[in-house]
């Protein structure tokens, strides 16, 4: 009985350690193909057969059916410049020149990586939908109900942003870490 209990405990601890270490390596460790640009980060090997195993698993969980780099570059952001998770308890704005791509969009996703429920159904802002400022720049409000200029609803929990760049400019594709992307400004927060 004692031996059975020890084997059982070894099984439980082993599975927990194996799954926990995998979770850390997949979702917390930085893979070699990850590129940072301000709050944004992108995995240049998304959709590619050359991608490392941990990135493959991460993309399968969070962005299944991503296009490869030749077609689209995806930048994601889940934290502000200070590393604090993006949360609907705070308002934010994205500002900057429209990204150099044939078409672009910014979409907000909830903790489950699904579109966020809101009465306004303001899930995204895109090259086809935004109103630009007088100087040609774009301002996108990130608020719980999607109010504000070119607003996107962030719901009532933490959220992540996905910036899609379809057919990005060659210069952007060549140096995604130096590309001019939207900057995030943190506004007021609620208790």
């Amino acid at each position: 009985m004692k031996t059975l209990f020890r084997w059982l405990s070894a099984l439980i601890v082993g599975v927990a350690l194996g799954a926990g270490s995998l979770w850390y390596m997949t979702f917390r460790a930085a893979p070699p193909s990850l590129v940072h640009n301000g709050i944004w980060r992108t995995n240049l090997e998304a959709g590619s057969a050359a991608i490392d195993a941990y990135s493959r698993l991460r993309i399968a969980v969070t962005s299944l059916l991503a296009l490869n780099r030749s077609e689209t570059i995806y930048f994601e952001a889940s934290a502000d410049a200070e590393g604090e998770p993006l949360t609907a308890a705070c308002d934010y704005t994205l500002t900057g020149a429209p990204p150099e791509a044939r078409w672009w969009s910014v979409t907000a996703y909830g903790p489950d990586d699904m579109l966020i429920h809101s009465a306004s159904e303001r899930y995204s802002a895109s090259a086809a939908s935004v109103e630009t400022n007088a100087d040609g720049s774009v301002t996108i409000a990130l608020t719980p109900d999607g109010s504000g200029p070119n607003g996107i609803a962030t719901g009532n929990a933490t959220f992540a942003l996905l910036l899609r760049l379809y057919h990005p400019a060659e210069s952007l594709a060549a140096a995604p870490d130096a590309a001019a992307l939207f900057t995030l400004n943190k506004g007021s927060c609620r208790a």
């Binding site: 601890v13 082993g14 599975v15 995998l22």
Partner: peptide, 9 residues
């Protein structure tokens, strides 16, 4: 046993 099971998992 724990290490082997963790690695396999």
């Amino acid at each position: 046993a724990v290490v082997v099971i963790a690695a396999l998992t």
